[in-house]
Amino acid sequence: MDYLDQLESEAIHIMREVAGQFERPALLFSGGKDSITLVHLARKAFRPGKFPFPLVHIDTGHNFQEALDFRDWLANSLGERLIVRYVEDTIREKNLKEPTGRNASRNALQTFTLLDTIEEFEFDACIGGARRDEEKARAKERVFSVRDEFGSWDPKRQRPELWNLYNGRIHKGENVRVFPISNWTELDVWNYIQREKIALPSLYFAHERELLVRDGKLMATAGGVIKPEPDDQIVTRTVRFRTVGDISCTAASESQANTLDAVIAEIQATRISERGETRMDDQMSEAAMEDRKKGGYF
């Protein structure tokens, strides 16, 4: 079997284990390429049946409109249930203090909304699109990652995971985060998207847009999420996004790649990691991801 077939089959197997072992699973859908890939894999795992889980989006309120439109179009065209919960509502209901200042992001607040949503629907498993190649804390996470009632990841208390046997037995209140594409790299995802002709939001391809230059990074001015400061330079450039997340912490890359072939050629040639290039949230400290995961982030 070709390596993409092996990765695909492994991911389908993991999703079916979720369907078989849990009563109320969910698929965390962000509108990014990794979760779009998960949805494609879910079709292969469960069609002609319905998905045994809804798609759940935690909306920071700072998302690109293109990603939201794509999300709604995808859920609609599949005829699958979409649940959206808003960080905005959590901030209001819980009277949370929103981070302010230069590089403020709602990324950390997402965790509160996610945990509330898990509680609201009593989800016992949440499928996510995290990959082990992304970050060193993720490199050590299990495919079935058991979390306590606070969503915390404890790297010292992980269950051994052998062969293709997954143990999803949990106590009430606990839940499991499941990562079917753990063993995929960024390039694997792109090669798969190309092979399977999976549709993506236009953000992933070169387009012209207005941006501000801050600390050497190109940040979108869209939606007025990032408040320009006097020394920020406003420019118009041809860019694409290598990752699509919250506007406040996702940087654009200058690129002319407007087809999948061109994007893949760029990814193959790049000498900078995905998160290093685009994610402001991981550059706060050496252990930024480790800390967020312990706090219940997926």
Binding site: R132, K136, A137, K140, P155, K156, S182, N183, A287, E290
Partner: peptide, 15 residues
């Protein structure tokens, strides 16, 4: 991980 560096051990399998 930081928790490993602090304790000078390797906790787990990394991929």
């Amino acid at each position: 991980l930081r928790s490993e560096r602090e304790q000078g051990i390797t906790i787990d399998v990394a991929y």
